[in-house]
Simulated assay, not measured.
Amino acid sequence: MGRIAYVNGRFVPHGEAVVHIEDRGYQLADAVYEVWALFDGKLADAEGHFARLERSLSELSIPEPMSRRALTIVLKEAVRRNRVRDGLVYLQVSRGVAPRDHAFPAGQVRPAVVITVKAVDRAAAEARAAKGVSVVTTPENRWGRCDIKTVGLLPNALAKQKAREAGAAEAWFVDELGFVTEGASSNAWIVDGEGRLRTRDTNANILRGVTRLTLLDVIREEGLQVDERPFTPDEAVAAKEAFITGAGTLVLPVVSVDGRKVGDGVPGPVATRLRRLYIARAKATAI
Rank of each mutant, 00 (worst) to 15 (best):
V174L: 09
A242G: 09
C146L: 13
P230Y: 00
A171N: 03
W143S: 12
D201S: 15
T150W: 09
P253I: 05
E221Y: 01
G248A: 14
T137Q: 13
P155K: 06
D192F: 10
S186F: 07
V174T: 00
L215A: 12
Q225W: 04
E235M: 11
R196A: 15
L197G: 08
G209A: 11
T245S: 15
G193R: 14
D201M: 04
L154G: 00
T138H: 11
G183K: 08
L207P: 01
L216F: 13
I244M: 15
R142E: 03
P233I: 04
V255R: 10
S186W: 03
R208A: 13
E222G: 07
N203F: 11
R220M: 11
P253Q: 03
S256C: 04
V151G: 03
L177C: 05
L250Q: 13
L224Q: 06
I190C: 07
T199R: 08
E222Y: 00
R212W: 13
E140Y: 15
T199W: 08
N141R: 15
P155E: 04
F173P: 08
R220N: 12
E170P: 10
I190L: 12
A204M: 06
K160N: 12
N156H: 12
L224M: 15
G152E: 11
R142G: 05
R142M: 06
V237C: 02
Q161I: 07
L215N: 08
N203Y: 10
T249Q: 13
V151K: 01
